[in-house]
Amino acid sequence: MLKPVDILMVGVGGQGTILASKVTAAAARAVGYDIKMSEIHGMAQRGGSVVTQLRLGEKVYSPLISEGEADIILAFEQLEALRWLPYLKPGGAIIINNQQIYPVPVLAGAAEYPAGIIEQIKDRVADVQVLDALKTAVECGNAKAANVVLLGALAKKLPIEETTWREALAATVPPRFLEVNNAAFTAGFNFGAGC
């Protein structure tokens, strides 16, 4: 029997959350999960929030995850991690890219980017993993592979074989980018190990 898993992927436009959700869905489908997915793009092309809700199970009826029900939050940016934290269930896990991307109000000087976000989250959640996905992706050969570094960390928490993830990655990523993405996935899967 496949254990149900609710995953919330949160980030900012341009960070590759959609690709990460497509690879996750492909890997989950390959092992027999029923999947429902919902994507929300809030001015994504201008650095706005992008949220993908992925629900995996034997049979899933709704794509939406209610507050307090996500098993895992995969956060591509610190402020988005904090913003969506109320959706994490008690005992859930959060994986955070330590990158900070300033939203328009901060860039315009109308607001300040909150300090100590990681510490605030660690005070409230026991299972927190923080990666420097951008730095790791650069070491692997392409900054745009930061999303796949995070995907590797997520893969470690799901009951899907590593080979299935790699097949899903190969089916989703253009062949010319596969080598760097495989390296990025390995680095995330080994939790922040370099390339």
Rank of each mutant, 00 (worst) to 15 (best):
V149D: 07
S62E: 09
I40H: 11
R166D: 00
A81R: 10
E112Q: 11
A81W: 03
E162W: 00
Q100G: 02
A137L: 04
A81K: 08
V10S: 05
G13S: 03
I95L: 13
A115D: 15
A146D: 00
T24D: 14
T163Y: 09
G47F: 01
P90F: 09
R124D: 05
F177L: 15
M9C: 14
G141Y: 15
V149E: 12
Q53R: 06
A28P: 14
H41W: 04
P63A: 03
I40E: 01
Y102N: 13
L8I: 14
W165L: 07
A146K: 00
V106G: 01
D6V: 00
L64N: 08
T136S: 08
K3H: 04
I96G: 04
Q53D: 02
Q45S: 14
P86W: 05
A20P: 08
E39H: 13
N182E: 13
I117T: 07
P174S: 01
T17V: 11
A115I: 00
G192L: 05
G13T: 04
V60K: 13
F76K: 01
L56I: 06
F189E: 09
V173R: 05
L19A: 12
A20W: 02
H41L: 12
L56V: 02
R124T: 01
A115N: 13
L88M: 09
L85S: 07
K122L: 01
G116T: 03
I94H: 02
Y61P: 00
L19F: 00
G16P: 08
E77T: 05
I40K: 05
A168D: 03
G91H: 02
L134V: 13
L107N: 06
V10K: 04
V148D: 09
L79S: 13
Q99S: 13
R176D: 06
A153P: 02
A171L: 07
A155Y: 07
G152I: 03
A110C: 02
G141C: 10
A111S: 11
Y33T: 10
Q129H: 07
I65N: 13
V5T: 09
W165I: 01
L74R: 02
R166W: 00
A145S: 15
I95W: 05
M43F: 15
G11P: 04
A70S: 12
T24P: 14
V106I: 09
A183G: 12
A93D: 01
I73W: 14
A111G: 01
V173I: 15
L154E: 12
D6P: 00
A70M: 05
A27E: 14
